[in-house]
Simulated scan of single mutants.
Amino acid sequence: MTTAERYAEFAAREAHGVSPLYERLSLAVATDAKLLTLLDTVPEGKRQPNLLYAVVRLLGGPVNDPEAFHDFTVGNWDRVAAQLRVRATQTNEPGRSAVLLPVLNGLPQPLALLEVGASAGLGLYPDRYSYRYGDQRLGAGGPVMECELTGTEPPSRLPEVVWRAGLDLNPLRVTDSDDMAWLDALIWPEHTHRRERLRAAVEIAAADPPTLVRGDLVDDLPALAAQAPAGATLVVFHTSVLYQVPEDRRRAFEDLVRTMPGHRISVEAPEVVPFPDLPPAPDDTLHNVVALDGVPLAWARGHGQALSWFGPR
Rank of each mutant, 00 (worst) to 15 (best):
A200R: 14
D293H: 10
P276E: 15
R313T: 14
A228Q: 04
W77M: 05
H287I: 06
R313F: 01
G151A: 10
R164G: 00
V103K: 04
H238G: 06
R214Y: 05
P276R: 13
V162W: 00
E93M: 10
I187R: 04
A120E: 02
L114H: 07
D168I: 06
L38W: 12
T259N: 10
A226F: 11
A223N: 04
L52F: 10
I187Y: 04
R85D: 10
P246A: 03
F237C: 03
S240C: 12
R96K: 13
G95V: 05
Q83P: 02
D216H: 14
K46R: 15
A291I: 09
P312W: 11
S19V: 00
Y125N: 09
L51I: 08
L25N: 07
E268L: 11
L104R: 00
L114Y: 07
E271T: 13
A118G: 01
V103P: 07
G142A: 04
L113G: 02
A252E: 14
A118R: 01
L217C: 06
A207G: 07
H303A: 09
V74D: 06
M260C: 01
G166Q: 11
R132D: 01
V174G: 15
A300E: 06
P274T: 06
G17I: 05
Q90R: 04
A206Q: 07
L114D: 04
Q109N: 03
Y133E: 06
T37Q: 14
G141W: 09
V257T: 14
L256D: 10
R87L: 10
R199H: 14
P155I: 01
E190A: 01
W188E: 03
A300P: 01
T37N: 12
G304W: 03
T37G: 14
F69Y: 13
G61L: 06
P43D: 02
V116F: 11
D71Q: 15
S97N: 14
P276Q: 01
T41N: 13
A165T: 00
M145K: 02
G121P: 03
T89V: 13
P171D: 07
A228C: 05
D178Q: 12
T192I: 12
P261Y: 07
R258F: 13
E23T: 14
A225G: 11
V289N: 03
R137S: 11
V103N: 07
V29W: 15
R249F: 06
E153D: 12
Y129L: 11
D293L: 05
A230D: 13
A306T: 04
E67Q: 15
A200S: 13
A120N: 02
P159N: 00
V144W: 07
T285C: 11
D179S: 02
V99F: 09
I265N: 05
R214A: 15
S119M: 04
R214S: 03
S119E: 07
G117K: 08
H238F: 12
Q83M: 15
D255V: 14
P282K: 04
V218Q: 06
A223I: 03
F69D: 09
V99Y: 00
N170I: 00
S177R: 08
E196L: 13
V213D: 02
